[in-house]
């Protein structure tokens, strides 16, 4: 392993999936530094398993599952660092980049403020609830896709989704973000 041909083969296999994996890393880790660490660690481990990867029919799904398992295995590390980084204001909603814009700076500013409140509300959810609601309601994963990715039965996913939405609604009503 490590030959130039391996690098070329590896890049050809993973490049089509990088954007989706990067988004997944964000949704799992919740902040820039941890998302980048998770993304990087996935690629390193994937490269170590290049011989397996070339044989896999759907490398995108496989890579997503490996990333999810990696996050779960090192949840304590990521969770601890995420709490620290929240204080530094590095969560997703801290910038307008990536936010669907309008022609009105005032409307954008209000929306950004709402997103900041959403950040704070999401940070109060458990990882299990936060991940499910972000995958389903933000990234558009179907329930069956979440089951395939996480190994959690659809019934449990539905239940977590319902509770996560209810909790977000409760928090956002209480802080005046929605009414």
């Amino acid at each position: 392993m490590g030959a130039p041909n391996d690098s070329i083969a590896f890049e050809r296999l993973v490049r089509p999936h990088l954007d989706r994996l990067h988004r997944l890393a964000w949704r799992l880790a919740g902040s820039k530094a941890e998302a980048e660490d998770l993304f990087q660690e996935l690629l390193i481990r994937a490269y170590q398993k290049l011989d397996d990867l070339v044989e896999i029919e759907e490398p995108g799904s496989w890579l997503s599952r490996v990333m999810y398992n990696l996050f779960i295995d090192e949840r304590r590390r990521f969770a601890r660092r995420r709490v620290h980084l929240v204080e530094e204001g590095q969560l997703a909603g801290e910038g307008l980049q990536g936010l669907a814009g309008s022609d009105s700076p005032v409307a954008d500013s209000e929306r950004l403020e709402q997103i900041r409140h959403l950040d704070a509300a999401l940070a109060q959810l458990s990882d299990d609830h936060r991940i499910v609601v972000l995958l389903h309601d933000t990234e558009g994963y179907k329930l069956a896709e979440i089951e395939e990715l996480t190994g959690i039965p659809v019934g449990t996913v539905k239940s977590r989704l319902h509770r996560a939405r209810a909790r977000l609604r409760e928090i956002l009503v209480a802080d005046g973000t929605i009414s």
């Binding site: 990088l18 954007d19 990067h22 988004r23 964000w26 949704r27 820039k32 997703a92 909603g93 910038g95 307008l96 980049q97 990536g98 936010l99 669907a100 929306r111 709402q114 997103i115 959403l118 609601v133 972000l134 309601d137 933000t138 939405r165 977000l168 609604r169 956002l172 973000t177 929605i178």
Partner: peptide, 13 residues
């Protein structure tokens, strides 16, 4: 809540 979640950004790399 659903509208906010739909707009929740994931910055590009």
């Amino acid at each position: 809540v659903l509208e906010l979640l739909r707009d929740y950004p994931a910055p590009a790399a």
